[in-house]
Every structure is written in structure tokens, then in C-alpha cells.
Design a protein around this nucleic acid. Structure first.
Length: 395
RNA sequence: UGGCCCAUGGUGUAAUGGUAACACUCCGGUUUUUGGUACCGUCAUUCAAGGUUCGAGUCCUUGUGGGCCAA
């Protein structure tokens, strides 16, 4: 009998995942990860992890599976929280939950599971694993969850073949309502529990307050750039090569204090991210102001009026060689290689047609349509049909 | 110092003498396993003092604050 360690979060998805594995004949062990216990930074309910671990235990009891709690908060702090501070300090916008999957759930946690003699780990993610045979070798695929509305493949875009090899996604073929129905039929305590939100394990936080643990407030100015600024009308030169064109289109707009007018003050450019509207506290405009660039060196936030402001849009982004990740290593592009894909630059965004262009120093992702608020530090993930082929950090 | 103009929520503006409104901001909520976005909702306004009028943001007087022209 194959042994599976399932990460029970205290939510409905992992509860049902555990049940399905048991029904399929696996020997199932439930393991709850405690990764954060500083409640002072979360909004609302005081002690979420205690309630969650209790629910997880009750579910394990009901299903008749062994249950344990592991404390990975040290690793979580080192690999996720510190990374967050570092990225924000650099003026980039990290995605901690993508890292959490790569570094905690499918690394630290997975290794613990294997030490417990497990053949697989399983989670309650809405995605699926496929296996294909190529040249006599098994290759694993990361496929979107069948519930298009809940598909969480994006958050797993940094997983490797090795990690996928020992992973199961039991609820990937189900929709959320189906999962809830199963939980209800089984009378599981988590059946009606609200979906988790905010930072995985930490929960909803007020970001500026959270970041103030490490990043000091520093007053600076907010500058508004006109939509008809000459910055956007730079004559499009004739490009000698495709790569020149891509480099030109991928380049960020360079703003200067004198390119716009000062419209307000802020308490630290590193608390803001591109595309952000709330928190600027500048009123009196016809349309809302959006952040189009943050300069943490000069501590200036550049904004544009309206969601169609030119400063928000670009069609090409770049990923450096060190930050290109192929789940399908066998499909990795060689230099000068190209590939038609569908891509997204944030969770739950609809997939957009794009072309990958591999060059010497990295990878260009050229979108057919302009994208709003392409943000450094976030992940771009590329797909073909339902399969997530690879991903990278936007630079 | 003479002459002219302006003053409405936190901000920008609207309101033939007849219930003070719209947008943005803030705050709250919904959606969302990141940040962000999107959606919904609440709070909040006539510079001050007099006067005319059944009734004044609107008309008159004075004051205060700001802008412009003249010198």
C-alpha cells in the first residue's frame, strides 16, 4: 500500500483531498504546518492557526488517519518572510506564496514526508498532474485545475520535475462546489469554512504595517505624469533586429521629478507597487491615480490618471537567465528559440497570447496585447492549453 | 495704495432665489491562497458677522483669506 502525507491546512480543500486519497486506497497521514504565529500583524481573528490546526485534527480524526503538527516557522521566516522584506526594499513586488510552495510545502515539508516513509505528498491545490512518456522517460506535467475559476497552477509555477514526481493533487478534477458537497456529505467540520485569503499561513495583513517591521517609513513626494507626456511619444526607431525591438519595448519608462508635477506626499515608496490605486491619498482628480512607477532610490512615486494611462502599459517583459524556470525541462528554449504560448502575470488573470523569445541573456515574453502593470518581482507563467510549461521572475 | 475677481465635504468642481450634487481621497465590506486590480457601501460641504426675502450657496453691506490689473 502506498503511503501519502497530505498537508492538512484546516480548510475544506485539503480535508477532501485527504478523504479522496483514503478512498483510493492509500495509507494517509495528515500533517499540519505551523509556519507563523505572530498574530500582531494580522487583521481580525486573533489566533487563526490554532483554530485551523484544531479543525485539521478533527478532520483527521473523522477520517481515521494519523495526524501530526510540524513547526516550520523558522524555515518560513528565513525563506519567505525575509525574501519579502528584501524584495520590497529593492522596490520590487514579491510573490511569497509562489515561493512558499517551492520552498516550504514542496521542499521542507516534502522532505519531512519522505522521512516519514511517504511515497507521495498531497495538497488541496486546484491543479492536476499529468504524466507523459518521452524517449522512454517519464515526464510530469503541471496542468490547470478543472475548475477554471479556482485554478491554482499559477502558484505552483516554480515546481520542478523532482518535486512533481512525488506529488499528488487529489481534488484537481473537481470543482469547488463539488468539493464542498463532498465535505458536506461527510459532515466534515470544514465543509462551510470560508476560503483562505491573504498571505498563505499569515493571512490578511495591512501591508505597509507589516513591512514596517523592517522597512522604515520615509517621506517622499508623489508625482503625476501627464498621459501626453513626451516620455511616451519617443519616436519608434527602425529596428535592425527583432531582439532590438524587444529590448526597446521591454524597457521601463525612466521618469524624473521634472517630468511631472508634485501632487502629494507618501510615507515610503517601497510600500507601493505598480498598478496600485489605493493608499496614495491624493484626491481631486477626475479619474483615480494609479502608481506607474516607484523609485525607491530617490523615494519618488510616479502616478498617472486613469486606468488607461500609457505609463501602465507594456507589451514585452524580460526574464533573466538565472530566473527562467522550466517545469518541462525537455521543452526549454535554446538561444534564438521561439515559442507560442498563453501567459499570465498574476493569479486569476485570463491567459493572454504571447510569444517567448530566448536570447543570450534571458527570455523575452512578447504579448499580443499590451498588459497593464507588469510588475518586477512578480512571476510570469506560460502555458500551452492546460499545461503550465514554465515561469520566471519579471525583471 | 486705488480697481476688478474669487471663496461650496479632505481635494477638484456643480447647483434659473426653492430638498446642496458629481468625481477623486479616506474609511468599511465583497471578490481573491501574493502584492495589486475590480465591485459595493458609509461618513463628510456653502469663510465669518449682519441685512433683504415666505425662502439665500446664490442678492446687499462689512470683515477675513487668496488671485489679477494699475502704480
Amino acid at each position: 500500500m502506498k503511503r501519502v502525507v497530505v498537508g492538512l491546512s484546516g480548510g475544506v480543500d485539503s480535508s477532501v483531498a485527504a478523504y479522496l486519497l483514503k478512498k483510493q486506497g492509500y495509507e494517509v497521514i495528515g500533517l499540519f504546518m505551523k509556519n507563523w504565529h505572530d498574530d500582531s500583524v494580522t487583521i481580525s481573528n486573533e489566533c487563526p492557526w490554532l483554530e485551523d490546526s484544531n479543525d485539521a485534527m478533527l478532520v483527521a480524526e473523522k477520517l481515521g488517519i494519523p495526524f501530526q503538527v510540524v513547526d516550520l516557522s523558522e524555515e518560513y521566516k528565513e525563506r519567505i518572510v525575509d525574501y519579502m522584506f528584501k524584495e520590497y526594499e529593492l522596490g520590487r513586488t514579491p510573490n511569497p506564496d509562489v515561493l512558499c510552495n517551492r520552498e516550504i510545502k514542496f521542499d521542507v515539508f516534502l522532505k519531512i514526508a519522505l522521512e516519514l516513509g511517504a511515497d507521495f505528498v498531497a495538497t488541496g491545490h486546484y491543479c492536476r498532474k499529468g504524466v507523459i512518456n518521452k524517449d522512454g522517460k517519464e515526464i510530469y506535467q503541471l496542468l490547470a485545475g478543472k475548475d477554471a475559476n479556482k485554478d491554482q497552477s499559477y502558484f505552483l509555477c516554480q515546481l520542478s520535475q523532482e518535486q512533481l514526481a512525488t506529488t499528488l493533487f487529489p481534488i484537481g478534477e473537481l470543482t469547488k462546489p463539488e468539493v464542498r458537497q463532498i465535505a458536506t456529505d461527510l459532515d466534515l467540520i470544514t465543509a462551510e469554512k470560508k476560503d483562505s485569503q491573504g498571505l498563505c499561513f499569515i493571512g490578511k495583513v495591512r501591508l505597509p504595517e507589516f513591512l514596517q517591521q523592517k522597512l522604515e517609513p520615509k517621506e517622499g513626494v508623489i508625482v503625476q505624469i501627464a498621459n501626453d507626456s513626451e516620455i511616451y511619444t519617443k519616436s519608434q526607431i527602425k529596428f535592425e533586429t527583432k531582439e532590438e525591438e524587444l529590448a526597446f519595448k521591454a524597457e521601463k519608462y525612466q521618469y524624473n521629478l521634472k517630468d511631472g508635477k508634485v501632487v502629494g506626499k507618501h510615507q515610503g515608496a517601497h510600500y507601493f507597487t505598480k498598478g496600485q490605486r489605493k493608499g496614495l491619498a491624493v484626491g481631486g482628480t477626475k479619474e483615480p491615480l494609479f502608481v506607474i512607477e516607484t523609485d525607491v532610490k530617490e523615494n519618488i512615486i510616479y502616478t498617472g490618471e486613469g486606468k488607461n494611462h500609457k505609463g501602465l502599459y507594456r507589451s514585452v517583459l524580460f526574464v533573466t537567465n538565472g530566473e527562467i524556470h522550466w517545469i518541462r525541462e525537455d521543452l526549454a528554449l535554446a538561444n534564438d528559440g521561439q515559442m507560442q504560448v498563453k501567459a499570465r502575470i498574476r493569479y486569476r488573470q485570463s491567459l493572454e497570447s504571447a510569444t517567448l523569445h530566448k536570447v543570450k541573456d534571458g527570455l523575452y515574453v512578447e504579448f499580443e496585447n499590451q498588459q497593464s502593470a507588469i510588475t518586477e518581482g512578480q512571476f510570469v507563467a506560460w502555458y500551452q492549453d492546460e499545461e503550465l510549461l514554465g515561469s520566471g521572475v519579471i525583471s
